[in-house]
Amino acid sequence: MSYAIAHLLQVSSSLKKITMKFSVPGHSCIQEVDSVHSAIERTLRKSEYSSPISLIRILLSVNSKKPYNILQMREQDFFDFNYYSVKMNYKSVPFSKVVALEFNKSFYEIRYRLSFSEAEYRSLNLRQRIGRRQSHVTAERGDILFPEILRKNDYAVVLAQHKVDAIKSMFKWMPKNDVTFYETVFSRLDKNKK
Rank of each mutant, 00 (worst) to 15 (best):
K172E: 08
H37T: 11
T43M: 12
M20K: 05
N153V: 13
Q31M: 06
K87D: 13
L150F: 09
L9F: 00
F95K: 06
Q31L: 10
Q128G: 03
R74F: 10
I70L: 09
M73Y: 10
A100C: 09
R151P: 04
S51H: 02
E183R: 05
S135Y: 08
R113E: 09
F95M: 11
P94N: 03
V185L: 13
Y3C: 01
R74S: 13
S12V: 00
P52K: 08
Y49C: 09
K176P: 14
S85E: 15
V86Y: 12
D34S: 14
T19E: 15
F103C: 01
L189S: 07
M88K: 06
L126E: 00
P175K: 04
T138R: 13
Y84D: 09
N153L: 08
S2W: 03
I58W: 02
C29G: 11
N192C: 10
S2A: 15
L44W: 01
I30N: 15
S47I: 04
R122I: 07
F171W: 01
L126Y: 01
L159F: 06
M73N: 07
P147R: 00
K21E: 15
I56E: 15
I58F: 03
D154A: 08
E41T: 09
L15C: 01
K176S: 15
I53A: 13
K91T: 14
K193T: 15
N82E: 14
Q128S: 08
R57S: 12
D154S: 11
D190H: 10
V179D: 04
N192P: 04
R122Q: 15
Y83E: 14
V99S: 02
S23R: 04
E183Y: 02
Y90M: 07
L145D: 12
L59F: 04
S35L: 08
K16P: 13
H27L: 11
E118Q: 10
L126R: 06
K172W: 08
M1T: 13
L44N: 00
E41Y: 06
D143R: 15
G131T: 02
S61L: 10
P25I: 02
E48T: 10
L59H: 02
S47K: 00
F186E: 08
D154K: 04
L124C: 11
F103R: 00
N89C: 06
K152F: 06
T19N: 09
S12T: 00
I130N: 11
H136W: 11
F107S: 01
S47P: 01
Q31T: 11
I167N: 00
R111C: 15
S61Y: 03
D143I: 13
V137T: 14
I149C: 03
S169D: 05
E120D: 13
S135T: 12
P94E: 01
K163M: 11
E32Y: 06
M174A: 05
V36I: 11
D34F: 06
K91V: 13
Q161I: 04
